[in-house]
Design a protein around this nucleic acid. Structure first.
Lengths: 239, 239
DNA sequence: CGCGCGATTGATTCGGCTCAATAACTGTGG
DNA sequence: CCACAGTTATTGAGCCGAATCAATCGCGCG
């Protein structure tokens, strides 16, 4: 399941993506410990880091690349729970709660991932209350986000949800030089986020395009009128 | 917002509902500290402990009673995020993530609630890594539950969701001597959990009753055929 | 006893899903 | 470099689940 090449494995101390992660405030001793314990590997597009139902043995840090986390619904359709990119940590939820993985993590593009074994992380948590607090904060924040998603799914019609999702995507992944959202998603993946049939997502995207709210170029999406999208999505802030 | 009577305020050391809470393993010193710092009050049915958007100043421990936590959707409809009962802690998510309350907590029946100020809790977290871990675990567990809810809302039809909700209610609140689920909910509240119109929830409940899966007596609900409900709800376990 | 909210049931509408057919695109091997 | 196979995207038609609207009923309670 894990790839093998440790070739360009960097030290954690010099890791750029760490700067934006929960590990940003580690002292050098712990950084060394982590560098020593971690293993780094490459995942190809579509390859899974772990699968729903498996037993967690550590956490994954994303050094490069983008991942999607999804659960399979009873009909087999993927429900995308969240994305993860450079500097994000994956798999901590199940590890910390002592449960099996509740979702599958899959690389959306070639990705370089570091793996930190459970023992190492737990040791660090024990001696470093700040790290514990940081991770608790992260979990609590995500919990708040989840309750928003729940309310939206339960109450907003598809059109509103999709409008909001587009703004969230822009916010999560940013834009490239040309102003397109910096992520490549299939229409199906977009629908798996929104909680809708793929055809519905396509139809609405076409509508938004016709209304000049967005611009479509294959999988590339550019937001032209965030204000109006926010109004459609019933969000005050432009997410 | 808070009621005043400290009349029957018990000590935390003797608090029965603490036995099942994250505070179950506190040592006597911290228990004293908590007893000293906490304030206990009574909330009437329908009274809010806190409201979405407010600034958290501490956490609430439920000594007695049942609460619902809900968010308001853009149309003003309540979305029930979770319930809380004896021994549960409320308001920790926002406090720990340093955000505003993301939901409103309201007493569903007369409730006795203890309030633990932010400073006290944070001090205890600092000196007690086990408590931190316990709370992190709690948050991570709930996060996993949330992702289940998200997948269900996005993918399951109303009929399946309602069947599952009934099983969850039974599991959460247990049954009284007569086998009825030990909580009193209006049809609207049930629909606000399920993410559906009240009329739809009513219709489906009537169906389930006609199919002899449940028994209805006013607000009282008794599960007659959990196995079949689980099948309808597409859940392997009987939740 | 009557007021008023919650529950129920019926009729109707409509959003969104499914099914189906095509078109466009991606990669792959000759 | 092109043709083919296998996805992925698009569009249309029809249907169905669930929301809405409307009316009545039943009670809990002052």
């Amino acid at each position: 399941m894990k790839a093998k090449d440790q070739t360009q494995a960097p030290t954690c101390a010099s890791c750029f993506s760490r700067e934006h992660s929960v590990f940003r405030n580690l002292e050098s001793g712990q950084l060394e410990q982590m560098t020593y314990a971690k293993s780094c590997s490459t995942f190809k597009k579509g390859q899974a880091l772990f699968t729903e139902g498996q037993h967690p043995t550590g956490v994954f840090c994303i050094h490069k690349g983008k991942l999607k986390l999804f659960k399979l619904g009873s009909s087999g359709k993927e429900q995308i729970i969240r994305f993860a990119k450079e500097g994000d940590m994956i798999g901590y939820r199940s590890l910390l709660s002592g449960e099996l993985f509740s979702a599958t993590a899959e690389a959306m593009e070639e990705a370089q991932i570091c793996f930190i074994p459970k023992d190492t992380l737990f040791q660090m948590l024990q001696v470093n209350p700040k790290l514990s607090f940081e991770m608790m904060k992260l979990a609590c924040h995500e919990l708040g986000e989840a309750s928003k998603v729940i309310t939206n799914l339960a109450q907003k019609p598809v059109r509103e949800r999709l409008a909001e999702i587009l703004l969230i995507l822009k916010h999560t992944f940013g834009e490239d030089k040309e102003g397109y959202i910096d992520v490549s998603l299939t229409r199906e993946e977009i629908s798996n986020m929104t909680g809708t049939a793929t055809e519905s997502a396509i139809r609405l995207l076409s509508e938004f395009k016709a209304d000049e709210l967005i611009l479509l170029d294959g999988k590339r999406i550019k937001i032209l009128n965030a204000k109006k999208l926010a109004k459609i999505g019933m969000v005050e802030e432009e997410v």
